[in-house]
Design a protein around this nucleic acid. Structure first.
Length: 671
DNA sequence: CGAAAGTGTATTTTT
DNA sequence: TACACTTTCG
């Protein structure tokens, strides 16, 4: 577990700003962990004065676990390891008074935002369907560039932008009324606050004396500024990143921030980690040669520490069904020959829709697989329901949450009733929840409706009070019991089995909540309000050890594979128009696609297979496919193009493919 | 309220 | 084309 000289340098350079260019598989997390330990144990930093920032909760959790194994319990006390958003949330929570926010604000996720904007724009731009998407993007862009509504209205150019700016202002006002924030606010608000308020800035600069940032190439403008404000003149920080693995520019990441940093901090120390400990020599060579086709600000070549290894294989299939069959056949044969496990294999693809066909092929061959990504836990309706209830408990003014849950399970507060409540709320400029409490509700609704609304909201207020007073767990239990949620699930699910599944999800969520309320070694106990916002940030303790133990073929998009590694990788759909994706080609952004291919290639430890089709159905039309230009850019001496006969006779090949599988299976079963 | 017909959409996704 | 999601109708 020794560090190589470059790693050592990255760890021990602490006197000023430091940029670590960390190639794939070069041990960057180890550098971050070691650096934190070094700062605490050698440089006399208190852990509570150090913060490390990541982009995903998963990365943050991993880092926390690894640091817990490195530092003593006392030594690690107060160490901040979190995502950008959680750090922002922390700052907002502690400064909510200065910001004029009530505690217990709601956090809107994308769907909440969409719902609110849809409502706000009903009159203005209903004609265009993607207008709304444009508006959402525009607002998000403004926030990420730290542009407040007032300034947006001043700088807006053209009719559309002026309208967008006005809607942005209206959106902000509504969010204030709901006492709600969105994800972008979690970065923008602290950044604006820190840059405009000297006292607060100094307080936080004193609190965070050393800052580390992971995956720096993924930062956007507001995140860049947040870092800048936090580190101040002293500029004691380390950022770690790899411009070759920047694959998120389409959602606002600015890899140029790596360059900007050198300009903002002329004394920036640059350390390159170029020793790769993950992949075979051939795989690395291929990756290096491929990425050399991209322009680079900082040159970097990964050096292999492992054997040269097997050649890379290119498998050509007739169509996408055939591709899946060949992958499965190759996988089964390979697994048998190498005594490997299912989980040693990954199938990586450009788009989620590609997964389906592989899923089918794996299923018919009874091969266990796991698809990462797709519909997340938190977009499940049962989870959204329960979260809705919790949000209303914490913040009754959260109309979105109220709308979601007020008639789930059905309690006679349907559209007609809501419409009337909504009118009252609108007239008095209060939230829906508050309207149910208003004396005028009795005139607004028929007696029965008014009764239901009042009983329901009073019950919630009472529960909310109880939760706040500290009897949180009991209040929660009573809530789930009180709404008869289990019955509701059995009533609304297509099968009892599905209902059971959903109830299991609810229990899982309940367990997370209880855990978070109580706290543990790594996390302090939280209030219900904190739990709700953290859950909206998807920041829960994922204790799914099952996943690691289970032996399944891994399937995911290339994007989702970043940061992971697998002994054997299938990079499928290596075709023009798919791996350099057509839409990227249209936008003239081949480079990002090349980086995506680079990320895919560098996931492989021992062997790498590419597959492509000669023909592929797209939008119901049979299209001819050309091999990806990236395949042609690779060193051909290290590639084996397998089975490229002119007349393959699809049926025959399918036959042999299948009988191969059957044969292997028979042999495996005997053993 | 639930089934049936209609509609929209096919790039990547976190927080 | 194929599928998910929405709306409509009985």
């Amino acid at each position: 577990m020794k560090l190589n000289p470059a790693q050592q340098q990255a760890v021990t350079y602490v006197s000023g700003p430091c940029l670590v260019l960390a190639g794939a598989g070069s041990g960057k997390t180890r550098v971050i962990i070691n650096k934190i330990a070094y700062l605490v144990q050698q440089c006399g930093y208190k852990a509570r004065h150090i913060a490390a920032v990541t982009f995903t909760n998963k990365a943050a959790r991993e880092m926390k676990e690894r640091i817990a194994g490195t530092l003593g319990k006392g030594e690690a006390r107060g160490l901040r390891i979190s995502t950008f958003h959680t750090l922002g949330l922390d700052i907002i929570r502690r400064e909510h008074k200065v910001l004029g926010l009530k505690p217990g604000f709601s956090l809107f996720d994308d769907q909440d935002t969409l719902a609110l904007l849809k409502e706000l724009t009903e009159d203005e731009l209903l004609e265009d369907k993607d207008q709304l998407q444009q508006l959402i993007k525009q607002i998000s862009d403004w926030k990420n560039d730290l542009v407040l509504p007032e300034r947006a209205q001043r700088i807006a150019q053209g009719e559309k932008e002026v309208l967008h700016a006005e809607l942005y202002a209206r959106y902000r006002d509504h969010m204030t009324a709901y006492n709600a924030l969105d994800f972008d606010d979690l970065i923008m608000i602290p950044t604006v606050l820190l840059s405009s308020n000297q006292a607060v800035r100094e307080k936080w600069q004193d609190r965070i004396r050393y800052l580390l940032v992971d995956e720096y190439q993924d930062t956007n403008t507001s995140q860049y500024q947040l870092v800048k404000q936090l580190v101040g003149e002293r500029a004691r920080f380390t950022v770690v990143g790899d411009d070759d693995q920047s694959i998120y520019s389409w959602r606002g990441a600015k890899p140029q921030n790596l360059v900007l940093l050198g300009k903002d901090y002329p004394n920036l120390e640059l350390v390159k980690l170029e020793e790769n400990y993950r992949s075979s020599g051939r795989i690395l060579k291929a990756a290096n040669i491929l990425i050399a086709n991209n322009p680079h600000v900082y040159d970097k070549t990964l050096r292999a520490n492992l054997n040269y290894g097997e050649p890379l294989t290119v498998v050509t299939a007739n169509n996408e069904e055939h591709e899946a069959e060949r992958v499965v056949a190759t996988l089964v044969r390979h697994k048998f020959m190498n005594h490997a496990k299912h989980k040693d294999y990954a199938i990586l693809y450009r788009g989620n829709h590609q997964a389906r066909i592989f899923e089918k092929a794996l299923m018919t061959n009874r091969i266990p697989y796991k698809i990462s990504g797709g519909t997340s836990f938190f977009s499940r309706s049962e989870i959204k329901d329960i979260m809705g209830y919790l949000r209303v408990l914490v913040n009754p003014d959260d109309d979105n949450a109220f709308l979601r849950i007020c008639n789930v399970p059905k309690r006679g507060m349907g559209p007609a009733t809501l419409e009337k409540i909504g009118r009252l709320a609108n007239r008095k400029q209060i939230s829906l929840f508050a309207a149910c409490f208003d004396p005028e509700i009795e005139q607004a609704l028929p007696p029965q409706g008014a009764e239901t609304a009042m009983v329901f909201t009073r019950w919630l207020v009472e529960l909310g009070d109880r939760a706040q007073r500290g009897d949180t767990l009991e209040a929660l239990k009573e809530m789930i019991r009180g709404i008869n949620y289990e019955d509701h699930l059995y009533d609304t699910s297509p099968s009892p089995k599905a209902a059971e599944m959903r109830m299991k999800n609810v229990s899982e969520l309940y367990r997370w909540i209880t855990d978070m309320l109580e706290g543990d070694d790594l996390e302090e106990a939280m209030t219900l309000a904190q739990v709700v916002t953290r859950l909206t940030l998807r920041d829960m303790m994922e204790r799914n050890n099952e996943d690691e133990e289970s032996d399944q073929v891994q399937m995911m998009t290339l994007h989702a594979s970043k940061g992971l590694e697998f002994p054997y990788v299938f990079l499928v759909g290596a075709e023009e128009g798919l791996l350099p994706h057509q839409s990227s080609l249209d936008e003239g952004n081949v480079e990002e696609e090349r980086r995506l291919a680079y990320v895919g290639i560098t996931r492989a430890q021992r062997e790498l297979f590419f597959t492509l089709c000669k023909e592929r159905r797209q939008y119901g039309e049979q299209l001819k496919c050309e091999p990806s230009r990236f395949l042609l850019e690779l060193p051909q001496d290290d590639l084996v193009w397998e089975a490229r006969q002119k007349k393959p006779s699809a049926e025959q090949r399918q036959q042999t493919g299948k009988s191969n599988i059957a044969m292997m299976r028979a042999m495996l079963n005997k053993k």
